[in-house]
């Protein structure tokens, strides 16, 4: 397996507050990797360390084979970062912004021109290249941020909550660009997010809480492990239905006229339905969501 990011025993404290407590994980090349966690879980601290902005207290990090703390310049050439805040210059046009940032990678002349055009095309900002960054809408700004992050044709693209603060439609658009980018270019994408539907589309998810890894796996595996499916029954005879369930050793909870039974496995629904079919008018099986999994893992809802 080709590990593009390898993290071992990563720790970081701010004074007495231990922000990251011994993280161990790796990221496979070419995958969409989601880092999920409540506010203050240590997501941004971890991303800042991986991007060479923040020095860790302990542990070892390798990005594309380069060791953090020893080969930071090589790491910086390998990565592109989209920060949570919009960090381009508001009075300069998108093109000027991308050009000046491209210069930071030692590019010049034709190569720079080519790199700016490529990045602009991939991030879909060609339409507003000549508009001042500060005058753009939230979604356009985010695209410009992504274009800037792509200007050095990075191996890994870090995105720190790229869709936070955007309206739902724009968020969807930006998210689809990120997905398409990762699919089409084979770029490794390392993402932190608040949004479960985004994490659900990742290839691999790590949930961190209190600076530690609380769970890890593919979204399907996490849902299977931490989020139970539900069988919702519409009773024709509620007391009889509850009695029939009790006879099977199951307990049902009444929610808004329906009786809800938690399932250990989706297929269990078949057997239950056979036993109670005389007392119901209808039923539905609801799959566990990433939201349920998140609550199951951290014991609380994610805050936006």
């Amino acid at each position: 397996m080709d590990k593009i990011i390898e993290v071992t025993g990563l720790t970081k404290a701010y004074g007495n507050v231990q922000a990251v407590r011994g993280l161990d994980f790796y990221v496979e090349r070419g995958k969409l990797f989601a880092f999920l966690g409540p506010n203050g879980a240590g997501k941004s601290t971890t991303i800042d360390i991986l991007c060479t902005i923040l020095a860790p207290d302990g542990g070892e990090v390798r990005v594309d084979g380069h060791r953090l703390g020893k080969e930071d310049a090589a790491i910086r050439n390998t990565i592109g970062v989209v920060f949570q805040d919009h960090l381009l210059d508001p009075l300069l046009t998108v093109e000027e912004n991308i050009r000046t940032r491209a210069g930071l990678y030692g590019m010049g002349g034709h190569q720079l021109q080519q790199a700016v055009q490529n990045a602009a095309q991939i991030a879909d900002v060609t339409e507003f290249l000549r508009r001042p960054y500060g005058k753009l809408s939230g979604g356009q700004k985010r695209r410009a941020d992504i274009a800037r992050a792509l200007v050095n044709t990075p191996q890994v693209l870090f995105l720190d909550e790229p869709t936070t603060g955007l309206d739902p439609q724009t968020r969807k658009g930006v998210w689809e660009s990120i997905r398409a980018l990762q699919r089409d270019t084979g770029l490794t994408v390392f993402l932190t997010t608040h949004y479960m539907e985004e994490a659900a589309e990742a290839d691999y998810v790590i949930v961190i809480d209190h600076g530690e890894i609380a769970a890890r796996g593919t979204p399907t595996a996490l849902k299977a492990e931490y989020a139970s499916d539900q069988l919702r029954l519409a009773p024709s005879d509620e007391p009889a239905l509850l009695a029939a369930l009790a006879a099977q050793g199951l307990s049902g909870t009444c929610v808004a006229g329906a009786v809800v039974v938690k399932l250990a496995a989706t297929m269990d629904a078949l057997a239950i339905l056979q036993h109670v079919q005389d007392y119901i008018k209808g039923f539905e099986v609801l799959n566990g969501t990433m939201d349920d999994a998140f609550i199951g893992i951290t014991g609380r809802e994610i805050r936006e």
């Binding site: 800042d48 902005i53 910086r76 800037r148």
Partner: peptide, 13 residues
């Protein structure tokens, strides 16, 4: 103040 410096810090300069 606007943390733009982060962008430079993450670049090879």
């Amino acid at each position: 103040a606007h943390k733009i410096i982060k962008d430079f810090d993450a670049s090879p300069v």
